[in-house]
């Protein structure tokens, strides 16, 4: 096919890039002397890097090492790869690669290096909280703990259960079944006594809208439980058996902070998996992951409960 336009219509050449001033075969050819000097510089910098690694500068070893490497990389890219005399768009293109790599690192690091800090009310929950509990025997209702529960109730519960605990909060309209009315003595799933409410707060109610509040510290959950009972028709006390059911074997002893970690940080979870697999010797591939299968979520349990014959 005859390509006539170049000779006949010199103005029809393609739109040049603003920065593309490389035309007319004006290729920059790297002089041999510059190439040799660059080689010597690279060799010198390599010796410096190796030498520096024997000097102990603490974390600065890393910083200096990377700076020297970057100078070397810049020499290779700028002179050997001729980026210095090239279309500037190419430098922008190549640079953008490193820029986005930097973004990748800088936004992965806030997770990968700051993992495991689960805070509730400004307190890290990664370890069982010891010695900071305000209420030594949180299962015993006192005016202070009920007041504390009332404050927590306003923060955590009123959207569904309503300010007066009637189960008519703003969000209740969308819920089926409706939230519990705390002023009535009917239908309490785990019984209407503080330990029952404590259990509900910890586990949530499968099949209903009640979520687990296990991220709250145990004493906060006890406080809520006492408050919820206090707004009911009568104040019910826990029996020793009720308390034993939620792990309080001896109600006369002070709280030791032994309530299990409310939220397992990922690092701990990973340790558990590693230990379990080491113990059972199933660390190899092609073994179905047992992770999460032993502990069915509430939804799974409900599904299992609904037995039906598949019409296959």
């Amino acid at each position: 096919m005859a390509d006539q336009k170049n000779t006949n219509h010199p103005q029809t050449g393609h739109e040049p890039d603003v920065n593309a001033n490389q035309g007319d075969h004006g290729h920059y050819i790297l002089p041999d002397s510059v190439a040799l000097k660059t080689l010597l510089a690279l060799a010198g910098l390599t010796i410096i890097t190796v030498g520096l690694s024997y000097v102990h500068l603490g974390p600065w070893n890393f910083v200096v090492g990377m700076i020297v490497a970057t100078i070397k990389a810049a020499l290779v890219a700028g002179i050997f790869m001729n980026l210095k005399h090239d279309d500037r768009a190419n430098a922008v293109i190549f640079g953008s690669g490193f820029l986005f790599l930097g973004i990748f690192f800088c936004l992965t690091a806030p997770d990968a290096l700051f993992r495991g800090d689960v805070y509730v009310n400004g307190r890290p929950l990664t370890l069982p909280v010891k010695g900071v509990a305000k209420f030594k025997k949180a299962w015993e209702p006192t005016p202070e703990i009920v007041a504390h529960g009332k404050a927590l109730f306003a923060q955590n519960c009123v959207t569904c259960h309503g300010e007066a605990g009637l189960g008519n909060g703003p969000a209740a309209a969308a819920l089926n079944p409706k939230p519990r009315n705390f002023t009535a003595d009917v239908g309490w799933k785990n019984g209407r006594h503080p330990a029952g409410v404590f259990k509900t707060l910890k586990e949530g109610i499968a099949g209903g809208g009640m979520a687990s509040f296990a991220t709250l510290p145990a004493e906060d959950r006890w406080s809520l439980a006492h408050y919820v009972i206090s707004i009911g028709p009568n104040v019910v006390k826990d029996t020793n058996a009720d308390l034993a059911a939620v792990g309080i074997a001896d109600p006369t002893k002070e709280e030791t902070g032994s309530d299990e970690t409310p939220s397992i940080p990922v690092n701990r979870a990973m340790e558990f998996i590693a230990n379990e697999e080491a113990a059972s010797g199933t660390g190899s591939a092609n073994v179905k992951a047992g992770v999460g299968q032993s502990d069915l979520s509430g939804y799974d349990r409900r599904l299992e409960a609904h037995t039906f014959a598949p019409s296959l």
Partner: peptide, 9 residues
Amino acid sequence: SYTMVRGVS
């Protein structure tokens, strides 16, 4: 890298 540069030029 140096020999490559010489080859290209």
